[in-house]
Design a protein around this nucleic acid. Structure first.
Lengths: 222, 222, 222, 222
DNA sequence: AATGAATGAGGATTCATTCAT
DNA sequence: TATGAATGAATCCTCATTCAT
């Protein structure tokens, strides 16, 4: 292969990095993380495998960066949607807002589900620190926004709520993506109990959680 | 290696199977699933590798059986504890009851966290069906028990509650077990937000969930 | 499994041995030698695996005995057919006679094709000696018969002719049983050259061989 | 292991591929196909095992390529020898020509003997197709050459003759390479019948075959 | 004699990562 | 910077055979 034009300026380099991430995201749509090879990503991106390692130090770092990026977009959407609101929100309103933020982001939800078992291994300290630092600041910022719209949410509990939502995403994502034989088993009529539909399950539980928080607040006051 | 005494009777065979599971469980305590080899389990159990395959058809089947077994014991405890109660339970009472049931079962929680990504692959249909069938019947039975102690839980919602709890277990298990560098990162003072302690996090969220359900029931009546 | 009735008398033992061979032969009809396990044979025969080893010392010995048996029946047929003839035979007559002897014996031909690579390994000296001794006496006897019907076959050349026929069987058997992808490749229209039909190919070549021998004899006389 | 110098140009890569094949051929001289491991070939070639898989997709593909290569050289020799001739050839002349072509190629003959049972498995369709296509074109070309030198060979029968020769090679190769105990058995004085010497047996039968074809042609004319 | 539980050797293959060019 | 050839660790599973019961 003829070497691709060189990315010299920082801007060009950022663009190339971005290309790699976009390629990985696209490939991830139809291939599980474990089945997705660096070879495939390089080929899809029209780059040599070695080039990937100029921009990322490991496969995990690629997907961690991808996760970071997609999380960033998710927070952007969420923050924008929240800031559009004028006054206090109802629980239902918030749930709908979350519903909208999840829609069209199946790959983000899948990335979160493997984040702790797959992506946070084999990355340098700096990368992990960067990721967590960013995640923290955005979680806190959005958490604070939530607090301002939900009266029952005491100061500092917005971020904690988001952590709970992470857990729910991971959990329901696992439950909703059975693989191989299990899919077959679950297709039996009497296995309806285990047929989990990600979005409804997630949103239903989120709503209950919010109601619980509201109740708790009221209860505490009394 | 000198052949171990033969398991001839059904009882002896059940015992040997049990030995293998116990060995796997013990080894799993200090080694991640991926790092745990069939070689290791065989050696620990004082058996030849081939013998393992006489009792289980694959590594996954070993751990699926283990999961099944541990889940069974968990349900046993839970059912016993519930049946001991006379009358209606408070939310706090139930949370404590769950707390007691989780205590001393860190490996079950870890097994559940990898159940869907690791264990349900490479297993024959029959094994998967058996597992799910058992899990279903116990989930429904314990779900029904829950319904009888929690006034706000409508008929049929007990099992659904347990599904939510599975999701919470999986999610918080992932959040609470950072690995390698991430552990280091999270040990920084300002990373407190992400330092998740499994039991408290799980129980706290469970309590909120239960309150939400209670609130929802009251709300619906009104 | 309840132990099968014991074979005590020599006759009973011979019968059991025969059962095993018949079972192996039947199983061999639809399964390649390598894919055929001792487990399968034992199960099909309604015996325990260990019992097989009371009658044969190895898998190879089972199939060597099977080959011996089937060869015996083939020689029986051949000899009978030859002895029925009164006078000298034509080449075509002999070819037809061979054709009849091969018909209904696809498994014998397949056994011969793996005899040297598979069956003659891992057998005790005595078994190999017995097999070869029997094969020799029958080859020589039938060879002699052939000599008496084919004028052009000089004394001692009948057995040599049979050896050539063994070689042809092995060779064409290999050519006629492509496996997997190759079968696909050969199904292409332009690959007709390699589509070998065992019986016709074998008999055609045999006829030419006999003509060559006849020609050689005539030529030598002149 | 220190990485071997890199094969960058196509020429260098072809050379490395060639090195691997040569190494395999050399190792094959003293080790049976089944006993020959990829580990051994890699070590002998001074390469990492993974490197082998850069050039061939499986062990079978290595040996199929080897077979293709050796067959190519054999056809080259045969064609050259044939084209050197001016006029019609005698049967004896042709047999000698074949004798010369086989001499020094014991490994090709052994490869042919395992081609159908061993090498044509586990190979991608394209590889099998390529092999068969090449073999077909060379078989037809050399077949046509044979037709031009052997008056009695009707058009189109040259390739068919070569197919018969393949069968003979496979068959006699098997007969001539007894293994283990059988070799011992055959070393007994009275087992002379089964002591097959590859070259003489092959050439003798080939000669008879050619005479048969000649006879058949003459017979048909009359 | 019959059983069947236990043994354990044995090898191809993938793919993230490196580094010479 | 870009390339892509080279590396090599790492592990599951089968199945003929044995031998205690």
């Amino acid at each position: 292969m003829r070497p691709r034009s060189r990315a010299v300026s920082d801007e060009q380099k950022a663009e190339r990095r971005s290309t790699i991430l976009q390629t990985a995201l696209t490939a991830f749509a139809d291939t599980a993380y474990d089945e997705l090879t660096m070879d495939r990503i390089a080929a899809d991106a029209g780059l040599a495998k070695g080039t990937l390692y100029l921009y990322f130090r490991s496969k995990e770092e690629v997907f961690l960066a991808l996760c970071e990026h997609e999380l960033g977009r998710w927070f952007d959407d969420l923050d924008t949607a929240l800031q559009t609101r004028r006054a206090e929100m109802s629980i239902n309103g918030l749930v709908e807002l979350f519903a909208a933020s999840f829609a069209g982001r199946p790959r983000l939800l899948r990335l979160l589900a493997i984040l702790h078992t797959g992506l946070e291994h084999n990355v340098p300290y700096a990368a992990a620190l960067g990721f967590k630092t960013l995640l923290k600041s955005r979680t806190e910022a959005t958490g604070a926004l939530l607090e301002s719209y939900l009266r029952f949410l005491e100061p500092g509990r917005g971020a904690a709520l988001l952590i709970k939502i992470y857990a729910l995403i991971i959990g329901f994502e696992h439950l909703s993506e059975p693989s191989g034989v299990v899919r077959e088993v679950l297709s039996q009529p009497d296995m309806e109990l285990f047929r989990v539909n990600l979005q409804p399950a997630l949103l239903d539980t989120l709503k209950i959680l919010l109601m619980g928080l509201a109740y708790e607040a009221k209860y505490r006051q009394a």
